[in-house]
């Protein structure tokens, strides 16, 4: 279970998150929608441990562990995975070397045995197939010269490799055409399981036609302004965020 309580965070003394409460039970898929600048990506980065943001109040607890007490790499070992909106290109480090180092580190931290070369390769092949990732990409530098679709597929591949219990997808749909979107969504759907939860961050409803959420939250001005079922996404698609933003302004 992932539980976020009264989370406040700021960057350079400017508050971005102003008290977020969010609980995702195992096996559930929640979607976080909201207008630009509402703090969606900030929430993802704060969860992953980006030092650029300062958490001023609140907690993020995953399966009983307070993530805010942990370094970014320990959060990954604790079961958190954040798929980046803009995956970083790292010249000189091959995908293969990166993934193997990441996998070994995470397994070590979880008290699991390292995989031998043969086991590792068979896991790579199996997980790459779920997002139709060309194995040749693994010989290239991390995200180096990847197309937008390849980058996002590589993120989902990494997610599959690291077997997290909570997955945060930060605008994974941005910059994807419909075919790439479908492949990424299928990859995510094959990973859905009763002991794994998802937070799908998106600006648009279209991704949610492929990854159908159990719960939809709308973030406005650093707070969750509305929560509903999957039909809320369709409602927003039709009327835009202005309705909620106005409503929120009235509440305030």
């Amino acid at each position: 279970m992932l539980q976020i309580t009264n989370l406040h965070a700021s960057i350079d003394d400017t508050p971005i998150l102003r008290g977020i409460d969010l609980t995702i039970n195992d096996g559930e898929v929640h979607s976080l929608m909201g207008p630009n600048g509402s703090g969606k990506s900030t929430l993802a980065k704060v969860m992953a441990g980006d030092e650029a943001y300062e958490v001023t109040e609140g907690s993020i607890v995953l399966n009983g562990q307070d993530l805010l007490e942990l370094d970014p790499h320990e959060r990954a070992a604790a079961g958190l995975f954040m798929a980046f909106q803009y995956p970083v290109e790292i010249p000189g480090v091959t995908m293969k070397y990166f993934m193997r180092t990441a996998m070994n580190s995470v397994r070590k931290n979880r008290g699991q045995e390292e995989l031998d070369a043969y086991e590792y390769l068979s896991v790579v092949k199996e997980r790459a197939a779920t997002v139709k990732l060309d194995l040749e990409l693994l010989d290239r530098p991390v995200n180096g010269g990847f197309s937008g679709g390849e980058k996002k597929r590589a993120e989902i591949f990494q997610m599959a490799m690291l077997e997290p219990s909570a997955c945060v997808l930060d605008e994974t749909d941005s910059g994807l055409d419909i075919d790439a979107l479908r492949i990424v969504a299928e990859g995510v759907n094959t990973m859905r399981s009763p002991d794994r939860s998802f937070l799908v961050i998106t600006h648009y409803q279209r991704l949610l036609s492929y990854i159908v959420p159990d719960v939809v939250h709308v973030l406005v001005d650093g707070k969750i302004a509305r929560t509903g079922g999957k039909e809320l996404a369709l409602e927003l698609e039709e009327h835009g965020y202005s309705l909620i933003e106005k409503g929120n302004a009235v509440d305030a």
Binding site: A48, G49, D50, E51, D71, P72, H73, R75, A76, A77, M82, F84, P87, V88, I90, P91, G92, V93, Y97, F98, T101, A102, M103, S105, V106, N109, P141, V142, Q158, L162
Partner: peptide
């Protein structure tokens, strides 16, 4: 940014730093 990306994938900071130096 590269440091954070590597760490977010479970690689400790000092190992991430070493990987980038190797690169």
């Amino acid at each position: 940014e590269a440091m954070f990306y590597l760490q977010a994938r479970g690689i400790p900071a000092d190992a991430a730093r070493s990987m980038l130096v190797q690169a």
